[in-house]
Design a protein around this nucleic acid. Structure first.
Lengths: 350, 350
DNA sequence: CCTTGTGTAGAAAGCGCTTGCTGCGACGCG
DNA sequence: CGCGTCGCAGCAAGCGCTTTCTACACAAGG
């Protein structure tokens, strides 16, 4: 039924071993023999059996990429960049590897299950993207899993994620969410804002906490009051931004600025403000985070912090493939860049 | 070093066969034995070797999803929906399957290579999303590949893609791009527009052609002139929309509407119009296609055709898993819904 | 009491590939 | 001219799992 290595060997009049070596190209084979084998492969339309070869060689060419939400460009951009570097077809790298993008939906259990599944497949590498959940039990479970993966020879890279315990040997490229949050709020303070609402992400995520910490640090540094009622938690989506903004407006109609957890949330905030008859930035300024492609198309264009997602992803991909050295200590912090655009301005009555 | 089935068997005092059967649950095993085995698995922290089991059972639990651009929510949404149905962790389905999202970048070669890679992995199913390339040679090559995959027991589903030759046995869920394009243009004609620019996608894509055909059909049906100079081809991205719009404006400053290949392009068009000092929809109306989440956040909100991406993806996923019957004839056409919003209005001087 | 079933576990034969080791000409050097 | 080398190909032993077929024990039926 299906063509096997042996069939190719028979047709090329060589042993299966030789065919294998031609295909893997890691052993001297005479040019004439190689050619004969290659022709046989072609004639028979032979396709290597991945599982069999993975079993025999005890390695596989699968690379796992864990994302929280594949429909979110934040992850899509990183995943695309990672994939282009791990040498899927068309990537720069040589060997063809299959990138497995796994959508955890932000669920800790799924994250763990996917890690097990990847361990089961003996993945060559695993890249975890996005913020982690701040649950100790889960963090421990993940760390344990990562340790096992590393022990089994899988390279583990965290991209846009806080470092795992050092003994996991996982490389981490972390975004400076705290610093970014601080820059944003300082920008608003410099413009004269004093009553700023903050729409945070899900409480248990590290990303949420770090960005919020940055915001508060900026407030504290400039002696600006920090009313807890001006912070609302929600999800990282538009709807959440919309609702949270209405809630903030209800609590404090005199807000002059809204700081959103990310650009998507900011868009929802903008919509809520407009629907409330408020102009941006004349009545209320809005800032986002991430600088996703659509942010520049918002009207007015969103002031935000640009995170080099593609660059970070590419780097993570290269490290995962062992084509770039890990940063010293296994940890690199990637800063964002403040992008001041039309959605922020001085408050009406300073 | 690594724990194998045999180790578990030894610890549970049973044969490897029994352990395998407990793990796969497709053979009667006495409750007491099962429990003993399960405990041993737990104690030893055993993880099944995927390749080995795939080899022995001649099946794998990998499901491939091919997308043109993973950073584009159009694909992200479909991929997410597919994945949630194929029973990855947390999905509704029982067995745990690994979804492999492959990013072709729109390249025909990569598409083919990924198909080979999936064939090599003996994937359980493959879902191809997005428009196909209209190159005969490539179409033939893909059809051949699909035929082989199907022959090898891989289920093949096309989602948002024109049907493959009937003898490939691939199920197709096709978007009615033609009809959608027609609705959009008819809407504009009904508003009184007569001079409409069209920003098409890459020339060789079926999606591009079908949408354009719909546009032209509407023009023809209503006796509206169709100046070839009013159609510009570009890529499916914002930049392209921006530049094409400027070009259209140069060619015909009297345009009263711009029809974009998709929402992303439409956003670029809006930006170009604004930068040219034109108001939307007062001076120029704009329509997109797809109704991606951000389209409602454009200012003014985009008139577009809503494609049920998540629903289509979910259905494709179920069909791929054999949990839903294929549509009669293996082909289903999915219509879009015209969403009239703020970006379209009557032309200034009718 | 022996036969026929029924339910459960084991033995063993692969699945298709990789790779360490062996084998065998040919070549070069003393 | 003989022997050590080198280059290349083959042998065969697995890799870790699934699954068919066989084996056994016990229950029920004639």
């Amino acid at each position: 039924m299906t063509v096997t290595l042996a069939d190719v060997a028979a047709r090329a009049q060589v042993s299966p071993a030789t065919v294998s070596r031609v295909l893997n190209g890691n052993y001297p084979v005479a040019a004439s023999t190689r050619e004969r084998v290659l022709r046989a492969v072609d004639d028979l339309d032979y396709v290597l059996n991945g599982p069999a070869s993975a079993l025999a060689a005890a390695t596989s060419d699968l690379v796992g990429i864990l994302v929280n939400d594949i429909a979110d460009p934040f992850f899509g951009i990183m995943a695309g960049a990672i994939q282009s570097e791990i040498g899927g077809p068309g990537g720069r790298a040589g060997g063809e590897r299959l990138a497995v993008v796994c959508n955890t939906g932000g669920s800790p259990e799924r994250e763990l299950t996917y890690l097990t599944l990847l361990q089961r497949q003996r993945a060559a590498a695993v890249v975890l993207t996005g913020g982690a959940v701040e649950d100790t039990a889960h963090a421990t479970a993940v760390a344990t899993k990562l340790r096992k993966l590393v022990a089994a020879g899988t390279r583990v890279v965290l991209c846009g994620r806080p470092p795992a315990p050092a003994d996991t040997d996982a490389v981490a490229l972390t975004f400076d969410n705290r610093g970014g949050g601080q820059q944003l709020t300082e920008h608003l303070i410099a413009l004269g804002h004093r009553r700023m609402g903050y729409i945070a992400g899900p409480e248990e995520r590290t990303t949420t906490r770090h960005r919020l910490e940055g915001h508060r640090a900026a407030l504290a540094a400039h002696g600006v009051a920090d009313d807890p009622a001006w912070t609302v938690h929600g999800r990282y989506d538009r709807r959440s931004g919309y609702e949270a903004t209405l809630e903030l407006l209800r609590r404090e109609p005199g807000l002059t600025a809204v700081v959103a957890a990310n650009d998507t949330v900011a868009l929802g905030a903008c919509a809520a403000l407009r629907d409330s008859g408020l102009r941006i930035p004349d009545d209320v300024s809005v800032v986002g985070f991430d600088d996703l492609p659509f942010s520049i198309d918002a009207v007015p264009a969103l002031t935000t912090v640009r995170l080099p997602l593609a660059e970070a992803g590419a780097r993570a991909g290269r490290i995962a493939m062992g084509r770039e050295e890990a940063p010293p200590g296994g940890i690199a912090t990637i800063r964002g860049e403040l992008m001041v655009r039309g959605s922020t301005g001085a408050p009406k009555e300073a």
